[in-house]
Design a protein around this nucleic acid. Structure first.
Length: 313
DNA sequence: AATCGGCCCAACCGCCATGGC
DNA sequence: TGCCATGGCGGTTGGGCCGAT
């Protein structure tokens, strides 16, 4: 007998998240913190699987996420970490605090893997990831090769890290006055994002934020602010997203009660406060320092230098 | 202008690890 | 000690977008 599914298939909504759902999820998490995902759908009224909620938060809504535009240093770091760790995207992402494992995985699959394959086709075997190299050699040869790979990767990583200012340090929190969705941080950096381009004043209705209206929906502080403006201007009571929202699910948005006199303004402010909590980014910084120590140790131990990694691109 | 095909990425699926009972 | 619930991770998919024809 197979294991029961993590969530009931009936009545569980799938597909892209709506702004209303994002706001409900964010407001819940800023109140209770991430975790206990099993309780999230029932407590928020979201017709989503707990897994879906967690993924939405970790891959999209979590503060401090940078989207798109991978820098050269990030590319190199990913390439070498992949060579070191294999397809352990979560581990790789821990060294790129602003990137999600899903983002890195997608970027690898769509860009870097192709580049490496092209480079490999050009005869640059040294640039191949460990996992792609021939495995026909004997154990001793394989171990020596692996150690060489690690040494090369360490050196290249250290070089990459030395010029990695700003990647591993969170951006100033008040720079963009953003909060929740520092998705906003990434979105605002993307000049072509709808949110970034719609910086003019005026209230934006929910339907204007919806994917169908103007491209992919990106949850930014600006969007949330406009959403809330629209709500507060249209609804006289507390934040009960109502009429304007043409929610396909027809369930959550209008049914959600934030409780405890939680107004829309308070939701937004509290969401900002949550982003200022360091716990979200802090864990990723500890391994980095250990990582740097490890790299430095390598310098001490690696008396016989290894040739620097030749970047295939 | 219409169609086609490739690219990109958000989201889903299934498996595994872990912790609580 | 075994079972179960839950969270986490990696692989894969589906659909929108965009350039080429």
């Amino acid at each position: 007998m197979g294991r029961p599914p993590c969530c009931d298939k009936d009545g569980v909504k799938k597909g892209p998240w709506t702004p209303e759902e994002d706001l409900v999820l964010v407001s819940y998490i800023q109140e209770h913190g991430p975790g206990n995902w099993r309780a999230v759908p029932t407590r928020t009224g979201l017709m989503r699987c707990s897994k879906s909620c967690r993924l939405r938060w970790t891959n999209y809504l979590r503060p401090g996420i940078k989207r798109g535009n991978f820098s050269d240093q990030e590319e190199k770091l990913i390439v070498h970490l992949q060579a070191l760790l294999g397809n352990r995207w979560a581990a790789i992402a821990s060294y790129l605090p602003e990137r999600t494992d899903n983002d890195i995985k997608n970027y690898w699959n769509t860009h870097l893997k192709r580049k490496l394959q092209a480079a490999a086709a050009g005869g640059d075997a040294a640039a191949k990831p460990v996992a792609q190299r021939p495995s026909s050699s004997s154990k001793g040869q394989w171990e020596r090769r692996l150690q060489t790979d690690i040494n090369m990767a360490r050196r290249a990583l250290r070089e990459a890290l030395t010029s990695l200012d700003g990647i591993n340090t969170p951006p100033p929190k008040d720079a963009a006055a953003d909060g929740v969705a520092a998705a906003a941080a990434g979105a605002s950096a993307d000049s072509d994002s709808p949110a970034a381009s719609s910086s003019s004043g005026g209230s934006l209705s929910l339907s204007q934020c919806s994917p169908s209206a103007s491209g992919p929906y990106v949850l930014t502080t600006a969007n949330i602010s406009r959403m809330l403006d629209g709500w507060t201007s249209k609804a006289s009571g507390p934040a009960t997203p109502g009429g304007a929202a043409d929610s396909p699910s027809g369930s959550s948005a209008s049914d959600v009660s934030y409780g405890g006199g939680l107004t829309a303004t308070r939701v937004l402010r509290a969401a900002f406060d949550y982003e200022r909590k360091p716990a979200v980014l802090a864990p990723a910084q500890t391994p980095l320092s250990e990582f740097e120590t490890w790299l430095l140790d390598d310098d001490n131990n690696n008396a016989h230098g290894v040739p620097a990694m030749v970047y295939p691109f």
